[in-house]
């Protein structure tokens, strides 16, 4: 990997989460999460099913308001910003499942990506089809009729073309063929090398840790452990088997 080694101490964090709590209705699912992600790094957030990883990403991207604590991007707390303002300031979040508009065509989906960043549709199309040639032949097709993996490619293309500063990826590899997954992780590494900050949420430890420069394990709405990828790989194994 071409990712430069950076130690958390010298680089200011691009993303800091401090004491975040969040709940659905009356049920609290995040019980005070603390996490700092240095700029230009790929940080892997691991954890078993239902740990609250996706919930944390919704909080960071402004879709859910935390009941306590704050999220800081760069040096600004972003508590009050709406999702679209956050997106315009350079936060890109690819949600788990379908990050696409099913009743729009592939091309129309790509047109929506142009809301952020000054790209033309043409440029967005070129870049997307360059990375995912499969999508080129499907530009007029309704996105909802694409195969599961094609939908995931389309969703991820938003991260590639909008030039985000902070990138949140929820279960990036879900539904994708091994070959594509390997390519995507390589791409994630390149993005980080360009100075972008990536927070990866994955359940599969091994793949995520190949590109990560830091990692943490979340269990039951709390960060259980944080450290280097290789440490976390061993730790995660125990967590999964015990939980």
């Amino acid at each position: 990997m071409t990712v430069p080694e950076m130690s958390p101490a010298t680089v200011p964090p691009a993303l800091a989460i401090r004491g975040v709590r969040a709940s659905y209705g009356r049920i609290e699912v995040l019980h005070g999460v603390d996490l700092t992600v240095p700029a230009g790094s790929v940080f892997a957030l691991l954890g078993p099913n239902g740990a609250g990883k996706s919930t944390l990403l919704s909080v960071i991207s402004g879709q859910m308001r935390p009941t306590a604590g704050e999220v800081v991007i760069g040096d600004k707390p972003v508590g009050k910003l709406s999702t679209q303002k956050l997106a315009r300031t350079g936060l890109c979040s690819i949600p788990e499942g379908r990050g696409i508009f099913p009743n729009l065509t592939v091309r129309e989906n790509l047109r929506i990506w142009t809301y952020r960043g000054g790209l033309s549709v043409k440029a967005v199309e070129e870049q997307t089809y360059g990375t995912f040639p499969r999508l080129a032949g499907r530009r007029g097709q309704l996105a909802g009729t694409l195969s599961g993996g094609e939908q995931q490619m389309l969703a991820i293309s938003r991260a590639l073309v909008t030039d985000p500063k902070v990138l949140l990826l929820d279960e990036l590899s879900m539904g994708l063929a091994p070959l594509i997954v390997a390519e995507l992780y390589e791409l994630v590494g390149t993005l980080a090398a360009q100075g972008k900050t990536v927070l990866l949420v994955e359940q599969f430890v091994t793949t995520a840790l190949l590109v990560a420069t830091g990692a943490a394990i979340m269990v039951h709405g709390k960060i259980r452990q944080q450290g280097t990828p290789s440490d976390m790989a061993t730790a995660a194994h125990g967590v999964y088997l015990s939980s």
């Binding site: 991207s61 402004g62 879709q63 709406s82 999702t83 679209q84 997106a87 315009r88 890109c92 979040s93 949600p95 990050g99 696409i100 508009f101 099913p102 009743n103 729009l104 129309e108 047109r111 929506i112 990506w113 142009t114 809301y115 952020r116 549709v121 938003r158 909008t162």
Partner: peptide
């Protein structure tokens, strides 16, 4: 037009539209 596509997109998924930087 992009606005026209955006007007249709908000029906599918307002949250995603917001994440894409447009105001649903």
């Amino acid at each position: 037009t992009r606005t026209g596509v955006g007007l249709r997109a908000v029906v599918d998924d307002p949250a995603l539209l917001a994440m894409s930087g447009a105001s649903p």
